[in-house]
Amino acid sequence: MSFLRILLIAAAFIFIGILPVHAKDMIVKEPPKSLSKYYPPESKQPKWIQQMHKMSTHFGGIFVNLKEKDYENVDVHADRLVEEYKKTSEMVPEWEDYFDIKAVEAFAAAAKTHDIAKAGKESGGLGKTCGKCHAEQEISVWAKFHWPSFHKIKVTDPISEKEVEFDDYMGSISTSFKGVTVNFGEGQYGRAAKALKVFKSRYMELKSTCSKCHATQDVKRFYVGQDADTSFAGLSQELNSEKPNPEKFWKNIGLLGKTGCKHCHLVHRTNSFIQKVWEQ
């Protein structure tokens, strides 16, 4: 191997080593299968997130008690943190390298000196191990285990009365929406009125779809609520009038898009895209 080649490889290693991890470099990778056993349905409870809360509580508990000079409880939290950290490090074999037992032990030892400055200094090493895993895995875990999957939702199409996949249903809504706007644009108001009935029926079905995850009425009304009712009433009025007013028609179409479609897409689509890639 030539000297120049070795130099180039060495330079590359140095460059990669010092390169900070920026958000733009983030890779949202599906979490390992072994994590599934700590979340429903494989587990009765979401044990992984509970484990995170335990560690976080003991970590926080050390500083709360150091400030209150409750040293007995500082020691209790320090011991429990080490215990839970070790336990967590064994839960997902693929993530074993994120954990540094020496770092947690060093932090616990510093905490037990009851010197808050020492504890603060030693917490950095431990914090880095948590931070690295969170930076690389937290979004994936939330996308996979904390958000229900859109791709498992089935919707009964109110027109065909057949159960269809959620994505296909969104396609049907989009098609029936175009039936309204395209026909209106062409001056085919009778056809637009018939298409509106189909579109409205499919759109309103989304209230049932929202209910599959959301338990409160207010949440689904945020997407399919008063604004949607007003828009549909306005559209219907125009299409059933002798001479529809295009300005009023398009205003209502815009209102429907902004308050219904866009609200939902802004909240839900990003996560849905991530899940879709994993499920393909």
């Binding site: 109110p158 309103m204 079905e205 209230k207 049932s208």
Partner: peptide, 25 residues
């Protein structure tokens, strides 16, 4: 033809003792 879906999740269920009216052109 026309169709109505009368369902609690769509907030179209029939309330007690109140007439619900549907109109078709």
């Amino acid at each position: 033809n026309a169709k109505e879906i009368i369902a609690p999740q769509q907030e179209t269920a029939l309330p007690y003792n109140k007439k619900m009216r549907y109109r078709y052109r």
